[in-house]
Design a binder for these strands. Structure first.
Lengths: 219, 219
DNA sequence: CTAATTAACTAGCGAACGCTATTAAATTAC
DNA sequence: GTAATTTAATAGCGTTCGCTAGTTAATTAG
């Protein structure tokens, strides 16, 4: 039986990858992709650039790993809510509630790493912005799928535009992220979330969405 | 009577300030503050750096002038809607409708210059980010004032949390801006806006907001 | 011990950053 | 015309950017 604790051959790593990644996550969350420099990252990690580059490859790859880590930790509340809550409405209500908590906890960073990371950015970082947009779209798609299930299960009317409804709640969450970043208090964000939930469609007994519900109002 | 067309003493300006400012606005709108370089700005304006600096002072002042111009042109729809529409609901509906139009018109830039400009940015540009946050807060305050008037006029119940309601619609508009930037089609954005309007409070005849309307739902 | 291996740091690359001292050009005043 | 005035372009300042070649340090294999 091989000893699982056998160490590799050369000089042992001084940089704890997991710890360094958390440091990078925090800095990128606060200052975005363009606003965080390699010098700031290495200083916060307590290493010099070569260590960072042998461990992560490039600034862009480090950012993507930090985004993955964010999605698996701070940003995982949405996926959990969608999977665990018995109804779509309860899932969305929990997403809004927990988004407020995560986005407004502590002094900094505030807001959502995916929303505030690199929306408008330089042409040389187009790939980074596109990757972020892809992650945002994926988050919306996950909500839509839960809503589709809700339609199949009768919670939502068969005429529900689940894509629009999912994108709507995602937009609210994105707006919450921006305003959390701007310093709006948690209680105010919660009040906004409660208002947002009032747009939840009212379904009739025959399974159709109530006529005037999600249609344009008359001028 | 003095000739108003008398030219000043020295060499005439080759750089049309108004035109150059519109060019800067477009670039900053597309790529944000950090993502737009002086080199790109001067190249697009067709001048060299000294001309830009004698005309605008610094990159930061140029950005602020571009934001002012945005607020007076592309971003002026909200103030106009608030001032011109007879009811607060009609004003908000028009803001959502026109936001979609402005944010998704043409290929680029898409989204809102104030929302996507410099949310998370480097510590050295903290002032720029704070100025943007201030402008976003001002936009919310303007909506809130219109809602306060609606309360005085009886359109909204006296118990309405106008601040939260204004922040909610602002959040929706900010979310629309992000998703417009991500390439979501105008029709989809419109559908989201229509859903958002369903959160508009139902007011009873006695002037109080309907009880269960904007309160947390039971778990 | 020596050799091999791996990762750290020193030092600095070329490029881009925001910005400007200096000089040349274009105009009016006299 | 010459002088004064104003703006433009040339050229490049010092700094920071992301990143890396070359060297030193720390460990295991034999």
């Amino acid at each position: 039986m091989k000893n699982v604790k056998t160490r590799p051959r050369g000089r042992p790593r001084a940089l704890d990858k997991d710890e360094a990644l958390e440091t990078a996550l925090q800095l990128f969350w606060r200052h975005g992709y363009e606003g965080t420099s390699i010098a700031e990252l290495t200083a916060a990690m307590g290493v010099t650039p070569p260590s960072l580059y042998t461990t992560f490859g490039s600034k862009e790859r480090l950012y993507q790993e930090a985004l993955d880590r964010y999605g698996a930790s701070y940003g995982s509340f949405a996926a959990r809510a969608l999977a665990e809550e018995p109804t779509a409405l309860q899932a969305v209500a929990r997403i809004l509630r927990e988004a407020v908590a995560v986005y407004s906890e502590g002094p900094e960073p505030r807001g959502c790493m995916l929303t505030t990371g690199a929306v408008a950015c330089g042409v040389e970082h187009r790939d980074v912005s596109a990757d972020l947009a892809k992650r945002r779209r994926a988050a919306i798609a996950a909500i839509k799928e839960r809503f589709d299930r809700a339609v199949r299960e009768g919670e939502l009317g068969r005429s529900t535009d689940t894509g629009a409804l999912a994108a709507y709640f995602a937009a609210v969450v994105q707006g919450l992220a921006i305003q959390a970043h701007d310093g709006v208090a948690a209680e105010a964000l919660e009040a906004m979330a409660n208002i947002a939930l009032c747009a939840w469609p009212k379904t009739s007994r025959d399974g159709t969405t109530r006529p005037a519900s999600h249609r344009p109002r008359s001028k």
